[in-house]
Design a protein around this nucleic acid. Sequence first.
DNA 1: GCACATTAGTTACAATTGCAACCATTATAG
DNA 2: CTATAATGGTTGCAATTGTAACTAATGTGC
Lengths: 158, 158
Amino acid sequence: MGTNGKQRERLRLEHFVPYRLSILTNTVSTAIAGAYARRFGLSIPEWRVIAVLGLDPGLSAADVAERTAMDKVAVSRAVSSLLRSRRVVRTRANGDRRRSELKLSRQGESVYWRVVPFARQYERELLADLSASERANLDQLLNRLHRRARALGPVRPG
Amino acid sequence: MGTNGKQRERLRLEHFVPYRLSILTNTVSTAIAGAYARRFGLSIPEWRVIAVLGLDPGLSAADVAERTAMDKVAVSRAVSSLLRSRRVVRTRANGDRRRSELKLSRQGESVYWRVVPFARQYERELLADLSASERANLDQLLNRLHRRARALGPVRPG
DNA sequence: GCACATTAGTTACAATTGCAACCATTATAG
DNA sequence: CTATAATGGTTGCAATTGTAACTAATGTGC
């Protein structure tokens, strides 16, 4: 891929990694989002909140934001929608009345246990072509690229 | 990754491939979009249009949409903005007066040749950690995942 | 040649998102 | 204790995006 310094060569978008990542993610996310919406009435942000609360009940909104890479506004909106649909319950932390403690309700747990197998199934099918070692490669590559992307950060103004 | 059929196990979002793809892409896209906007006054859709026209002058909006995985509305908006900023010129195809033929203007070419090295540089830095064979792996994995994701498509209603 | 479907592209409107300003509560400085 | 800052979370507004409806031009069947 683009290692050599060939200059003045026109760029083929279809070989450009950031573009390809974007297309791939968009394809996957659209498929998943559609399925979650149709089958469970969940948006992706809502699903993310449910997913972390399923694993870690009692988190605050800020904790959820941190664990899901969502910003606090997105969390706030997802939570308020989940409160309306009674899938999440909120209590105020005693000792700090700003902080909320979020948990899945019984309904929320029930949705959780319907979505999780579905999500796993989708992932399984997405990765069906790959051997165990290819999956391990993918795993590593995603980690390293993400680490690198975070390090590069908000690209230096020039 | 999620190959075995273990049921009733709670899901760790941070090991879930679709989620990780989404985070990675989001990190990369945000960085790139910010830089394009600041340095060149380009949105991602505009950059994509410029990128394909730089390689293939004379495409129609529909062609551009196909090559960039954007929908026609997004292309229309990006093109109209690029027309306003005089980076793209449009002529009507004679023989079919619906069809437009899009080309970069001199200004458009000039932006193109400033963006391309920048894009390459970002990609180079993103992939800096990876050996040649790891890059080849990544390349293959992205292709195969995308093929697979397209095949799975708008997840079957159940 | 005339209805009817198709295709290219735009426009209008609704939903989503992102950012900044904003309360309320707790923490810190003097 | 009071003033100021910092934290948790929500709300309002503007920009972005997606969907559907629409106009204009071409193609098709008869």
